[in-house]
C-alpha cells in the first residue's frame, strides 16, 4: 500500500517536475517568475490535442509538435512582454505584472478562439494498468515518468555539459558579468524561454492526457511553481526534488488522511519547508549582484 502510494506520487511528481524546471530555468536567468508559463503549457496541450485529433499524426510526433509550438510561443512571449522591460531596466515587479497580463490574455484568447469546453485526449495507451506483484502501475503514468526522465536528462546535459549551457549558467550567476564576457543576454533569454516552453509543451500533453484540456488549466501549474520554490527557485535539481516531494506528499495526504484535505496538508508542509529554509531545499542564499 505504501509502495503503491509512492508509485502514484512519483507519477504526479513527474508532471510537476516537467513544469517546475521551466519556472526555475526562467527564474535562474531573469530573476522573475514567469506566471504565463502555465498558459504556455495549456497551449502546448491544445497543440498536442489538435495534432492528434485533426492532423491525425502519430503520438510521438504530436509531442514533438507540442514542444516546438510551445517553445516558439514562449519565445514570442519573451520578445513582446518581457524584453522591452528588460532593455529599459524596469523593476522586476513589472515583469511579474506583465506575465500576469500575458496569462490572462492567453486564457481569454483561447476561450474566444477555441472555446471554453473541456476536451479529453483519446486513449493512446490501454487503460488497463501493469501489475507488478501487488503494485499496479498505470501505462500512462509509466509513459509520463519515462518522458519526464528523458526530458530532464536532455535538459541537464544541455545546461551542464554544452557550451551554450555554460553561457546560460554564467548568465544565471550574473547577467551583467556574462555580457561583459561577450555573451548576448537577448540570445540567452530566447534560449531559456525556448527550453522552458518546450518542456511546458510536453508537460501540457502529458497533463492533458492524465486529466483534461481546458483554457484555464494553466492555473494548476501554480502547484509546480510551489514545487520549484520549495526545491529552491532557480535550481534545476531543486525543482525536480521539490516536484517529487510535492507529488508524494499529495498522494499520501489523499490516501491516509482524506482527499479533501490533500492540498491542505501538502501546502502546510510546503509552507513549513519554506519558513524553515527560505532558500528552498537545494537553493543557495541570494548572491550578491554586480
Amino acid at each position: 500500500m505504501i509502495l503503491q502510494q509512492i508509485v502514484n506520487g512519483i507519477s504526479i511528481g513527474a508532471v510537476y517536475a516537467l513544469i517546475a524546471v521551466g519556472y526555475s530555468l526562467v527564474y535562474s536567468v531573469l530573476n522573475f517568475s514567469n506566471f504565463a508559463h502555465g498558459d504556455v503549457l495549456m497551449l502546448g496541450a491544445y497543440i498536442g490535442f489538435f495534432s492528434l485529433m485533426l492532423l491525425k499524426v502519430p503520438f510521438p510526433l504530436a509531442i514533438a509538435m507540442a514542444m516546438v509550438g510551445a517553445g516558439i510561443i514562449a519565445m514570442i512571449i519573451e520578445k513582446i512582454a518581457y524584453r522591452p522591460l528588460r532593455l529599459r531596466r524596469a523593476p522586476l515587479l513589472y515583469f511579474m505584472i506583465s506575465a500576469m497580463g500575458m496569462s490572462i490574455f492567453l486564457q481569454n484568447f483561447t476561450i474566444v478562439t477555441i472555446g471554453p469546453n473541456f476536451r479529453t485526449y483519446p486513449d493512446i495507451f490501454p487503460v488497463k494498468p501493469f501489475a507488478v506483484g501487488n503494485l499496479s502501475i498505470g501505462r500512462l503514468d509509466l509513459v509520463i515518468l519515462i518522458a519526464t526522465v528523458i526530458v530532464l536528462l536532455l535538459l541537464t546535459w544541455l545546461v551542464y555539459k554544452t557550451r551554450i549551457g555554460i553561457a546560460i549558467q554564467a548568465a544565471a550567476y550574473n547577467m551583467r558579468v556574462a555580457s561583459l564576457m561577450g555573451i548576448n543576454p537577448d540570445l540567452i533569454a530566447t534560449l531559456v524561454f525556448l527550453l522552458a516552453g518546450a518542456s511546458a509543451g510536453i508537460g501540457g500533453v502529458l497533463f492533458g492526457m492524465k486529466y483534461t484540456v481546458y483554457p484555464w488549466m494553466g492555473v494548476l501549474t501554480i502547484k509546480a511553481f510551489v514545487a520549484a520554490v520549495v526545491g529552491g527557485l532557480g535550481s534545476l535539481p531543486g525543482a525536480v526534488v521539490g516536484a517529487f516531494v510535492l507529488g508524494i506528499t499529495e498522494t499520501f495526504a489523499a490516501a491516509y488522511i482524506s482527499s479533501a484535505f490533500r492540498d491542505l496538508f501538502s501546502y502546510l508542509l510546503m509552507t513549513i519547508i519554506i519558513v524553515a529554509r527560505p532558500a528552498g531545499l537545494m537553493g543557495t542564499v541570494a548572491q550578491e549582484k554586480a
Binding site: 549558467q169 554564467a170 550567476y173 558579468v177 555580457s179 561583459l180 564576457m181 561577450g182 548576448n184 554586480a290
Partner: peptide, 24 residues
Amino acid sequence: LPPHVIAQKGIARTFQNIRLFPDF
C-alpha cells in the same frame, strides 16, 4: 552599444571586487 557587443569588439575588463563565476 550593449556590453556584449563592446566586449566582442575587443574591450575586456576585470573588476574591483572579483566577479568570477564562483561555482564554475
